[in-house]
């Protein structure tokens, strides 16, 4: 087995954004279930939140390769 410690670090770092993205879409789904007509508005908000949360994971992968 060989590998890079950076990748383990990245795996750990990805937990946070993973949970965050899950929470965002859970809230989005229950929001749409309650109020299907609000889907259009909720979708853009959810995607924006998803992008922000995923930014952390993406910074992680960048650092994993660069450091």
């Amino acid at each position: 087995m060989d590998g890079n410690l950076n990748m383990i670090g990245y795996g750990l770092a990805a937990i946070g954004p993973g949970v965050g993205i899950g929470l965002i879409f859970a809230a989005y789904i229950s929001g749409v279930a309650r109020q299907p007509e609000a889907q259009g508005r909720l979708q853009s908000i959810a995607i924006l939140g998803f992008a922000l949360a995923e930014a952390l994971a993406i910074i992680g992968i960048a650092l994993a390769f660069v450091l």
Binding site: A51, L52, E54, A55, I58, I59, I61, A62
Partner: peptide, 17 residues
């Protein structure tokens, strides 16, 4: 930082990754 600097970086890296 978030709106001007991180946005393009995440945009590119999300697609790439």
């Amino acid at each position: 930082f978030s709106n001007i600097l991180v946005r393009p970086a995440t945009l590119a890296l999300r697609l790439f990754a």
